[in-house]
Amino acid sequence: MTAERWAELYRLEFPRLYRALLAVLRDRDRALDALHDAFVAGLRHPPAHDADLAGWLFVVAIRSSRRLRRLPLLPLEWVTGHSGDDEIEATLDRMEVGRLLAGLTERQRAMVVAQFYLGLDHREIARHFGVKTGTVSATLAQAKARMRAEVRNAS
């Protein structure tokens, strides 16, 4: 795959991947940095097939974001006087989906978003995350149980 082709495919997938990462990470900088890392990783070691590119980019970005999270970065508000991520948090909290996802672990959120927003099936999620299909099913079942409980509590 040429660099131009890779950039073209990445641009096509960027909007929904960025939003998926926002839903999981709830942080604009982490989402953008993670996607940048996934783009660069794909330039060096592109996925074997164009198909299911979104799933590949999503999981590479999620893994990258976990490394980023451990870095003791200075909070953005120290520089700007406000945090743009307060706004994202507030937006997500106003959304039904945001509230449902907020009660999940980050791993559960990643799999739920992969299934319901990116449209990956259990087998694809398992392949990208490097786990067994049974693990995906169990994680999603737990996540759905929590979301159902959240819906019941809200009503």
Partner: peptide, 14 residues
């Protein structure tokens, strides 16, 4: 819902 989340400027995507 998620499609309504704002995107960063296109110049920062890559």
């Amino acid at each position: 819902e998620l499609d309504s989340l704002p995107l960063p400027p296109e110049g920062s995507w890559i």
